[in-house]
């Protein structure tokens, strides 16, 4: 038996560096986002030359092009950005706090709550404008969140798993009630399905200002969650032994998810896949450190929603496809690709 040839010395080279977030990565994302934002001002279902867009951007002249850029494209771009950031961050928080890579912010019941409140607004109170829908869906999201907390709190306090279970149950109930109303009343169905498809068009800046405080609050809660989420990934016991109060931080995180998802849904109806897909993309580029994953998720979310909205404006000219529909068509395949091609980052 021949002696084994000496193996090469134990690897001295450091293991391939784990992907991790960097300031450079954030800068690249911000630049991409800025480019997408500009493209969103320049591209629409109505072809307007770039020169004209730039001209009216800085010198509004009351022309058709000026109205379109200032009153239609700027508000929808701002909304798409806000909603994308909110849903991306909410998705990262949700997957982190539940330690479930398939968790979607909608699992907490806020989307179903918003939808039911909108239906009640239409059916009972005759609300038919977007600002009204936004108030009702904010209220509905808040009430559903409160119900989920009340039901999901075990003796030790609310923990994410029972909150998700409670959220699923509350969602199922509210979705059924929503169906009861819309199937009974065709006028309500007509108004509701327009909201339920998820769209950033046809809304003015007023809707953005309306939901902004909730998004900002949600982002602050998310920022508070970032560093503690890393420790929470080690398990509650380890986190507690390191001096953390796991339950308190989880509640902060879940509240953040509810604020962000509720505000995004109020602004433009339910937009699927953003909260599910974006955190995976963020981890792919930014590693597992939540201090990076959260801002990466926000920026990628904004980018994704803006790009999806631009696609929706050009595919069926002179009409448009709503961002919710484009997102389902784009987001679904991305998600399947992520699941198939890359091993899902363990969390």
């Amino acid at each position: 038996m021949s002696t084994t040839t000496p193996r090469p010395a134990a690897p001295t080279a450091p293991p391939p560096a784990l992907r991790r977030g960097s300031v450079r990565g954030l800068v690249v994302l911000v630049l991409l986002l800025a480019a997408a934002g500009l493209a969103s001002l320049a591209i629409g279902s109505r072809p307007i030359s770039l020169g004209t867009v730039v001209g009216v951007l800085f010198h509004p002249d009351g022309s058709d092009a000026s109205t379109i850029v200032h009153d239609l494209r700027i508000p929808r771009t701002v909304l798409a950005l806000a909603v994308g950031i909110a849903l991306g961050v909410a998705g990262a928080l949700m997957q982190g706090h539940t330690r479930n890579p398939l968790a979607d912010p909608g699992l907490l019941g806020v989307e179903a709550g918003a939808a039911f409140a909108v239906v009640i607004g239409i059916y009972v109170f005759g609300v038919h404008d977007l600002t009204g829908y936004a108030w009702f869906s904010l209220a509905g999201a808040g009430l559903a969140a409160a119900a989920v907390f009340a039901i999901g709190s075990t003796r030790g306090g609310p923990d994410p798993v029972s909150l998700v279970l409670a959220g699923t149950a509350v969602s199922a109930l509210l979705i059924s009630l929503t169906q009861v109303v819309v199937l009974r009343d065709i006028d309500t169905l007509d108004a509701y399905r327009f909201w339920a498809v998820g769209s950033v068009s046809g809304r003015g800046m007023d809707v953005f200002w309306q939901v902004l405080p909730f998004i900002v609050t949600g982002l602050v809660l998310a920022a508070m969650s970032g560093s503690t989420l890393n420790l929470l990934q080690l398990g509650d016991d380890v986190a507690a032994s390191l001096g953390l109060h796991p339950m308190r931080h989880k509640i902060i995180g879940v509240l953040g998810v509810m604020m962000l998802t509720g505000a995004a849904t109020a602004a433009c109806g339910p937009v699927g896949f953003v909260g599910l897909v974006v955190p995976h993309v963020a981890r792919h580029f930014g590693g597992v450190d939540y201090r990076w994953v959260i801002p990466y998720s926000g920026l990628i979310g904004g980018l994704l929603v803006i790009v999806a909205d631009i696609i929706g404006r050009v595919v069926v000219r002179p009409g448009e496809l709503q961002v919710g529909i484009v997102m389902a068509m784009v987001g679904g395949p991305i998600f399947i690709y992520l699941v198939r091609r890359t091993r899902m980052v363990r969390i």
């Binding site: 629409g44 279902s45 109505r46 058709d64 379109i68 239609l72 494209r73 068009s201 046809g202 404006r313 069926v316 000219r317 002179p318 009409g319 448009e320």
Partner: peptide, 17 residues
């Protein structure tokens, strides 16, 4: 214009077509 039956669908940007 447009080939569809009954309606032509215009985005709000094209409302003045």
């Amino acid at each position: 214009g447009g080939k569809d039956y009954y309606w032509e669908i215009l985005s709000w940007e094209n409302a003045d077509r």
